[in-house]
Amino acid sequence: MLVDGHMHLENGPLTKEYVMEFINEAYKQGFDRIQILDHTHRFKEFEVIYQGVKEASDQQREWLANKKMKFKDTLSSYVCLINEVKEEELPIEVLFGLEVCYVPEYKEEIRRILESYQFDFLVGAIHSIDGLLYDMPWSKEILWDKYNVDDIYHRYYELIFDLVKSGLFTQLAHPDTIKMFNYYPTYDLKPTYHELAKLLVKHHVKGECNTGCYYRYHHQDKGLSKELLDIFKEHHVDIITASDAHKPADVGTCIKDIYKLCQYD
């Protein structure tokens, strides 16, 4: 089954017509199932969990103040859209969820918000190291060139482990996208990867092989690093392929290149 397990409505409206652009593109490419979501920073209900990100730097505060993109919609409006699309006769299987920016100190607040809704899947993601975003144009200035890279990696995977153990999520977003700017630790990551794989299996959380780091940020790996992918397969992690598309034209990007690598014999 050809699956794209992660694509965003972020750059468009919450309308059935816009959703159908993603569905039609996936159908044209021969996908059997897609999973549509959006970042929690789109929704008003989640603004509280970004307080630490706002306070950590002026750039981040300004980025989150853009009300044309951030905290502009409600979860109820998203649910209405989901129900509207699901009433249609669709050419492929379409699931809907959220990508939740996981912040440990707001774990129970996240749980409280989510318990009022029934989504097909929930993706947990780490985008910041204690409030400092690692994947933005200003990240080198505020994080990578300011702090020890080993410490950043240690903390990133501590946060990932806590996310997986929280019981909130069915899927882990881009597990090794911390590599995106080609900063690497001096220590061996294999023990960390083995621990992560065991946790994913224990807590029944899927691990993404996400191509977004490759085509959106020009990292050399088309998905997971070979080392991490091999360890996931060794432990029989449930691996889901994902494009991280942020527009319809990017649906399925490079997934066919990595699909067979992610399958079990």
Rank of each mutant, 00 (worst) to 15 (best):
L64V: 08
L64D: 04
A65S: 15
K67A: 13
K68C: 07
M69K: 14
K72T: 08
D73T: 09
L75T: 12
L75D: 05
S76F: 09
L81F: 12
I82S: 08
N83S: 12
N83R: 15
N83Y: 02
K86D: 12
E87C: 08
E87A: 14
E87K: 15
L90P: 11
I92Q: 01
E93F: 09
V94F: 05
V94R: 11
E99F: 11
C101D: 15
C101I: 09
Y102R: 12
Y106A: 01
K107M: 07
K107H: 14
E109N: 12
R112V: 05
E115I: 10
S116K: 15
Y117A: 13
Q118K: 13
Q118G: 03
F119S: 05
D120K: 02
A125I: 06
A125D: 05
A125Q: 05
I126C: 06
S128A: 15
S128N: 15
S128C: 12
D130V: 03
D130L: 08
L132H: 12
Y134A: 04
D135P: 02
D135Q: 02
P137F: 08
I142F: 03
W144G: 04
W144P: 01
W144A: 11
W144S: 09
N148K: 06
N148M: 01
D150Q: 03
D151F: 03
D151V: 08
I152K: 04
I152D: 05
Y153P: 06
Y153L: 01
R155S: 05
Y157Q: 04
E158I: 00
L159Q: 12
F161I: 06
F161C: 07
D162V: 02
K165D: 13
S166T: 02
L172Q: 09
H174G: 07
P175D: 10
D176M: 05
D176L: 10
T177M: 07
K179I: 12
M180C: 00
M180N: 00
N182E: 14
Y184T: 13
Y187N: 04
Y187P: 08
K190I: 13
Y193I: 12
H194W: 02
H194S: 03
L196Q: 03
A197C: 02
